[in-house]
Computed example of a mutant assay.
Amino acid sequence: MDANIDLKKIWNKQETNVPKVEELFSKLDQFKRNSLLKLILVNLTLLLTILCIGFIWYYYKPELITTKIGIILCILAMIIFLVPYNSQWSLLSTQRTEPNSKDYLQNLIQLKEKQLFQQTTMLSNYFIMLSLGIGLYLFEYVSKMTISLGVVVYAATILWIGANWFYIRPKIIKRQQEKTNNLISIFKKLSKQLEN
């Protein structure tokens, strides 16, 4: 079977009420642009956060080793999160190809696999390391507070981490997966039509 089949021609021959191929590729391009913008913003945010944490370490010169270990764990968590996250760059930054190839479907499937790995394994590792780092970092400063204030600080920190883990993270993952799955299902339908 020829790898370069005119998807545009086949797509437009359909009698069902489906979007035109130009709209489909436009949606895909918009999805890629939005995902690329998100990737850039996450990189900038985490790199600025790393710089701020480094500045705090340099300027305030923590005394306890737990504080230093906490800072290192936080920075390491962000770096470990960014390395595989940036592997999506090559899939998102590729220029639009002609709509007569199956590259779009393969790119989307690869992107979904990378996102799934990022959303499960890497995000879990990130949250665990970041939580431990914040807990160790706070120890030096909480130890100088009254017990009741220390409990409030740790409770608020645990509450914030829990809200991110159990509420915000699942909503973001679900929204991202819905967008990717929607595009993949449309391109799979198109590929099945090619096989018939």
Score class of each variant (00 low, 15 high):
residue 83 V to M: 02
residue 83 V to K: 00
residue 122 M to C: 02
residue 52 C to H: 10
residue 56 I to A: 15
residue 63 E to N: 05
residue 99 P to W: 04
residue 59 Y to K: 15
residue 117 F to D: 02
residue 128 I to P: 02
residue 62 P to Y: 07
residue 56 I to P: 03
residue 79 I to D: 06
residue 64 L to N: 04
residue 124 S to H: 12
residue 105 L to M: 00
residue 107 N to S: 10
residue 117 F to K: 02
residue 131 S to K: 04
residue 52 C to I: 14
residue 56 I to D: 03
residue 101 S to T: 15
residue 66 T to E: 13
residue 81 F to M: 09
residue 73 L to C: 12
residue 93 S to G: 01
residue 105 L to I: 02
residue 99 P to Y: 01
residue 62 P to A: 08
residue 68 K to A: 03
residue 73 L to D: 00
residue 81 F to W: 08
residue 117 F to R: 00
residue 65 I to H: 10
residue 129 M to I: 00
residue 141 Y to K: 07
residue 67 T to A: 15
residue 115 Q to V: 09
residue 70 G to E: 00
residue 55 F to A: 12
residue 125 N to R: 07
residue 64 L to D: 15
residue 68 K to R: 12
residue 133 G to H: 02
residue 90 S to R: 10
residue 109 I to N: 09
residue 116 L to H: 03
residue 119 Q to D: 15
residue 124 S to F: 10
residue 139 F to V: 01
residue 84 P to E: 00
residue 137 Y to G: 12
residue 134 I to N: 04
residue 113 E to N: 15
residue 102 K to T: 14
residue 70 G to I: 05
residue 53 I to T: 13
residue 111 L to Y: 12
residue 53 I to M: 10
residue 90 S to N: 08
residue 78 M to F: 09
residue 127 F to P: 06
residue 108 L to Y: 08
residue 56 I to Q: 08
residue 82 L to K: 09
residue 126 Y to T: 02
residue 130 L to S: 13
residue 57 W to Q: 03
residue 119 Q to H: 15
residue 142 V to P: 00
residue 142 V to F: 00
residue 64 L to F: 13
residue 129 M to C: 12
residue 114 K to S: 01
residue 64 L to E: 15
residue 119 Q to K: 05
residue 75 I to M: 14
residue 72 I to H: 06
residue 143 S to N: 08
residue 103 D to E: 14
residue 135 G to H: 02
residue 115 Q to E: 08
residue 58 Y to F: 04
